[in-house]
Design a protein around this nucleic acid. Structure first.
Lengths: 352, 352
DNA sequence: CTGAAAGCGCTTACAG
DNA sequence: CTGAAAGCGCTTACAG
């Protein structure tokens, strides 16, 4: 019932079709199509004339008609499975998206975004997108240990690039960063400063990269002969980061250094330390994973593990376009996060 | 040339079509379509049988075919025109998007996102989306004074809802919040505390809501007989917020209170005050616009002007769906931001 | 209530 | 190098 009204109200200007261009350029619709797709079948002079006419009347090919006649939909999908409040506060996703966009825009690809409640909902979205032929491929975030999305995507044959790993991505292409190496570098740095009791406030335990970090943390602490490498699990929110910090700092053998799995929790931890009367970095050193501008805004500025997240997004999108293009694509190892020492870390000896 | 490969590699599982459902249910394709659309033309029993078959074989209607045969594309567009670094750090957009998504998901609408470099690129994207029939409507952010996008959208007849105002939205529907009222409330509160020299670090001057706030600021200061209501323009980044704060705090008649147009600049301002040896709130009171979790993480926690941004997104999406549905929609006045006093504001008399 | 058919706007073999 | 035609998978009047 809305149809009539929609076309009346929604489209006062007539959208030109390929037939309009053909008529105006004095060629067939087929010729216009060839010209637009940069395919052989039209002379260069004709092609130019056709393109000029198309530009003149503001013609864009209907993405629906293109998709229906077998072409790609020229869109990729990204389903985000995080609660709204976490989505907003973490710069990670927006930075990733801006990188993805940079690559897609250059190729006139659209990004279809969907926020989902849980993994089942996300899988349902993939099945729907596939059935609707709405996207040519998907970017998969927040890889879990034993991720149920991977076999579904393999079964559907929906082109996909997993952002995460290494491992656990089945036959899907992936883009990953060596978190274990970054974690080791950080612990070695803190140990070199003289820290012995180092703790970590970790991200969501079900995420693969969390367990990779935890495993690396345990290993390096054992190797360096540091006592009990405690990891307190958390959920990336400031509240949980603060709570975990309070617990750590209240324990009899409180740590002299804490590594946080994201910047928001690190900032919350800094606040808690100050509220408990501990000096940072005198009494407590703090390292944040994800070096956002926030880390530089607080006092003292936070030592952080940073890397170029927009570039990560660019690489992921590029991989996905390659998979969609039919290339056989494997793992792409992105830059490893590097440590930027700032005012929040120092030797624990320098107390007071 | 990628086609053959794509179909081989990209779709090992055959996607079911409406014909498959029809065959299996023993009805015509038309009947399936009616059943799926909830339209009269099939008996209830048949409808149920058809829906069961569709679910069983995992059928979703091709969005391309639907769009081509006159239905909506079931997608709306959102073009964001901010540099990548600002996009990442401001929770606003992600919160807005999560609200928009909440409304769209409920109606199985997709969100098509595009990051653009400037207004011209954004206008080009609207023209392209319209030509491609890729989206049924758009959400317009960051309304400017004399916004060039408004007449273009009116001319195209592309359903749109402007997030911003009041005013300057032409015949387009809009959703807005009364920033002037919130600003006045804040200044009155600071004046009641005894502040006389109040300054403001503003957002991008070309945005309409910035000038609305500036105008309200000037007016209320004049009414309350406060001297020179200084607004230093800025760009929402921490760097610029810090710079503006340094300038304000170095001036001979330095303000005793500063209002920041976003939370990131307020946090940067807090840092600068501390670095310059000023106590907050003893020597300087700080108010942040946009009350994100960040405001509660810093020390002292920031007094902030907050409102429910996801809800704002919900309302905007709802309005847009109404416009797309053919309804005649006007302005929707959303909640006014309310002031939450925290530790960063106090009477200026209480110095030391 | 159901079935056969036209049509949406493209792409792409297929003849010329 | 170009034109006429089939077909993609739906929706929707139109007959029965």
């Amino acid at each position: 019932m809305t149809r009539g009204r929609r076309s009346t109200k929604g489209a006062p200007v007539k959208r030109p079709t390929i037939a309009d261009v053909a008529r105006r350029a004095g060629v067939s619709k087929g010729a216009v199509s060839y010209a637009l797709n940069g395919q052989p079948g039209v002379s260069e002079a004709t092609r130019q004339r056709i393109l000029a006419v198309a530009a003149e009347i503001g013609f864009s090919r209907s993405s629906a008609a293109r998709a229906l006649s077998g072409s790609a939909s020229d869109a990729i999908g990204l389903a985000l499975c995080r609660p709204a409040r976490t989505l907003g506060i973490e710069p990670f996703f927006m930075e990733l998206i801006s990188g993805v966009e940079a690559e897609l825009s250059a190729r006139s690809y659209a990004l279809t975004l969907q926020v989902v409640a849980d993994q089942d909902a996300e899988i349902a979205v993939y099945r729907r997108w596939w059935g609707e032929r709405r996207v040519d491929g998907v970017l998969v975030c927040d890889l879990r240990t034993d991720d149920r999305r991977v076999p579904v995507l393999e079964e559907l044959g929906l082109p996909a690039v997993v952002i995460g790993g290494p491992g656990g991505t089945g036959r899907l292409a992936s883009v990953w960063s060596d978190d274990a190496a970054a974690l080791v570098e950080t612990v070695e740095y803190l140990a070199a400063l003289g820290h012995r009791r180092i703790a970590r406030v970790g991200g969501l335990p079900e995420l693969l990269h969390t367990s990779i970090r935890t495993e690396a943390f345990t290993q390096v602490c054992r190797r360096l002969d540091l006592p009990d490498a405690v990891t307190v699990p958390s959920d990336y929110t400031g509240e949980e980061g603060a709570r975990a910090t309070r617990r750590l700092l209240s324990s009899p053998a409180r740590p002299t250094a804490v590594i946080y799995d994201n910047d928001v929790m690190a900032i919350a931890g800094l606040s808690v330390a100050q509220e408990m009367g501990l000096a940072v970095p005198g009494d407590l050193s703090i390292v944040a994973w994800d070096d956002s501008p926030l880390c530089r805004l607080v006092h003292p500025p936070l030592t952080a593990l940073g890397r170029d997240i927009p570039a990560y997004g660019v690489h992921a999108a590029r991989q996905l376009l390659a998979v969609i293009g039919g290339a056989s694509v494997g793992e792409f190892r992105d830059e490893t996060a590097h440590l930027t020492p700032r005012g929040s870390t120092a030797s624990p000896l320098r107390i007071g």
